[in-house]
Amino acid sequence: MPRWGMVIDLKRCIGCNACTVACKQENTTPDGILWTKVVSEEIGIYPNVTRAYIPLICNHCEDAPCERVCPTKATYHTDDGIVLVDEKKCIGCGACVTACPYKNRIKLHKEQLQRGLFKIGVLTPFEKQGYPRFVAGTALKCTFCHERVANGLDPACVVTCPTEARVFGNLDDPSSKVRRLIQARKGYQPLSHLNTRPKVFYVE
């Protein structure tokens, strides 16, 4: 069984947010819900200043705090290591949202499903076909596009990235690109001191 993970190359990311848009298109996430996004950081002091872009996504942690605190066991690990939420079990207590150190959990409010992406209270056909999968009041998170992955495809954000800054693969396979990148370029995990053992690595 593979153990899916991702490597994000910060040197390659140009901050175009194509991944953000691809994720919204793939998953029809409602207004205000972003499962991945690119934040920026200004480094240095004028005139020696630069801007770095940091793509953020759920880290699908091995020891996920969001899973640990969930009182209903709605958050679970699949056999291949993807952390998912069973919306039929979630009660919307928000414990997972507060427990995720990366703030990659979002509670979905009813209004977000009603107002639509254009905020006029009318849903487009695209939203109408996508929203029934969501349950208002429950917690949402990135799924690593598990339906795509199950069919042998990469997640939408990975496929879309024009600079190939995101690489997806099996962390247990020594010959996989993710493993080779982590080893060659000393990949590190975000907030690794919290011991959540994220499966998303960054390389610089």
Binding site: R68, V69, C70, P71, T72, K73, A74, K89, C90, I91, G92, C93, G94, A95, K107, L108, H109, V135, A136, G137, T138, A139
Partner: peptide, 25 residues
């Protein structure tokens, strides 16, 4: 008032092993 789906509140007892919310409930 806080819960997103209050009708399922009883499910909060399912995570007794790990979750302090379940233990508290």
């Amino acid at each position: 008032l806080h819960l997103g789906v209050p009708i399922r509140f009883w499910r909060a007892i399912m995570g007794l092993k790990n979750s302090w919310i379940s233990k508290g409930l």
